[in-house]
Write a protein that binds this DNA or RNA. Structure first.
Lengths: 132, 132, 132, 132
DNA sequence: GTGGTCTAGACCACG
DNA sequence: GTGGTCTAGACCACA
C-alpha cells in the first residue's frame, strides 16, 4: 500500500511535528491499523526526502508515548490501545481548525471561497475511499 | 472592541506563524476590514504575552506580502488588496494547485473531502466581499 | 577565495539593506554563481563584525525573494532564478517604470544621463549570462 | 522653478538621509546655486508628503554643517563657501556606486542590462539640460 | 507614542 | 555545525 504522509519543508512547522501529526492522524482514522507496520525509518526518510534522524526521532517519540512499538530487527508497529476512533466532537473541531487555516491561506492568495469549493467538489469523482 | 488573536506557546508551530495566520484569517473573514488599524506592535505583544520583536516580524512579513501597510510613526493598517488581473487560465491553475495541496494535507490528517467541503460551505454566510 | 562584502556601519543605510544589496550585486555580477554556497550566517557575521541575527534576516529576506535557497542544517545557496515567462508588454512596462525611478534618483543626485549610461555600458564586459 | 527632490518612503534609507543627500547633490551640481533659497520647510514637507519636522531637522543639520543658512522670518539659503564644483574623481566614484546599486536592483528584478540601457538611451531625446 | 534596527545570548530543528 | 525562533533591552526615525 502506498500510504502517503504529506510533508512540506517550506512550512514553518517543524518537520518532526508535521510527521508526528500525520502518523497520529493516520492511526486515529484507521488508515494505519492496529499491529500494522510503519515504513522503516530509512524508507520513510527516502519517501519524504528528509533525514533519517528526523524520522527516527519521531518514531522514538511515538514509542515513548505508547503509540507505536519498535521490535528490534523487525520494524515499528502500531500499538493496540490507541485504536479508539476519534471522538466525533474532537474530529469536528480539528476539521474546523483546518478549514480556518485553509481559508486564511486562500484569502491571502486571492482565491474566492467559491473557486476553492468548486475545485474541491470536482475531485469527488476521482475519490476512491472515504478518506481522501 | 476586543479583537482577540489566539496564540498557543506550547504548539510546535512558531509563534510568528500562528500570529500571521490569525491575522490573515481575521482579514479574510472580515473581522479586520480594509484600512483598519492593527493593534500596535507593543500592544499586541502585551496582549499575547510575547516579545514585541516577534510581533514586528509578523507585521513586516505581512507588509512584504502586501497584506498590511505600515506608516512610520503612525501604525499598521490593513491594505486594500489589489489583485492584479491574473490571466484566467493562470488563476485556475493556481487554484487547482492549491486545492491539490489542501487535499493532500487533509488526507494526511484523515479528514474526508466531504467534511472539509461542509466546513468551508458553512463559512459562506459570514462572507462580506467577493474575495474570501 | 576571499569574497568580501563591504559594510559601512556609519552609513545611515541600515546594515541589513547594505548587505542585501551587496549580495544581490555579487550574484548579478557573477561573483556568486548559481548553486554556490554563501558564507554561513555566523561566518558572515564574524567577517562583517555584525550580529548574526542581522545576517540571518538578510538571508531570510533573500530567500523570500527567491534569490537564495536555504537548506535547514546545511547552508544557504544561490538559487537558479526562474524568470516566469512575463508577458512582453508587461516586462517592458516594468523596465520603463524602473528606468523612470533610476532617472529620478540620478537626477536628484546630480548625475547626467550620459554619465550613468557610460558606467552601465562599461559593465557589459563582465557580464556572464543573459540576465544582468 | 520646480526643483524636485526624489524621496522614496519605501526605501530603507531614512527619509532624513535621503533628503539630506538630495539637497547636497543639488548644491554640489549647481542645481541649487549660491544664495538661492530653498523651499520653505512646510512647502518641502507638502511636496514630498513627509512630516515638516523631518524637513526641519534636515535643514538644521545642513545649517550646522555650514551648507545652508537660515534667516529667521525669511527663509533658508545656500551658503557661499560650498560652491566648489565636485572633484571629477569624486564624481566618478559616486556615479560608479550608483551604477552598482542600479545594477543590483535590476538583476534582482530580472532585467537585462541591455533592456535597461535601451530604456535609458531612449530618454536622451527628451532631455532638457545637462543634468537629467 | 509609533514602527524599525541592532545586539547579545539562549534554545531548538536538522544533517 | 547549519539555519531558525525567541527574548530582553538599547537606541533611532518619524508624527
Amino acid at each position: 500500500m502506498s500510504l502517503m504522509f504529506y510533508i512540506n519543508p517550506a512550512d514553518p512547522i517543524p518537520l518532526y511535528a508535521q510527521l508526528t501529526r500525520a502518523i497520529q492522524f493516520a492511526i486515529t482514522t484507521g488508515q494505519l491499523r492496529i499491529g500494522e507496520q510503519l515504513p522503516t525509518v530509512r524508507q520513510m526518510a527516502v519517501d519524504l526526502k528528509i533525514n533519517a534522524n528526523t524520522v527516527a526521532k519521531v518514531y522514538a517519540e511515538l514509542e515513548r508515548a505508547g503509540i507505536v512499538e519498535t521490535r528490534r530487527g523487525v520494524g515499528t508497529f502500531v500499538c493496540a490501545r490507541h485504536f479508539e476512533p476519534m471522538q466525533k466532537r474532537q474530529h469536528e473541531n480539528k476539521v474546523r481548525d483546518f478549514a480556518d487555516r485553509v481559508l486564511a491561506e486562500a484569502g491571502a492568495m486571492g482565491f474566492s471561497l467559491d473557486d476553492l469549493i468548486d475545485q474541491l467538489q470536482s475531485r469527488r469523482k476521482k475519490e476512491l475511499g472515504k478518506y481522501v
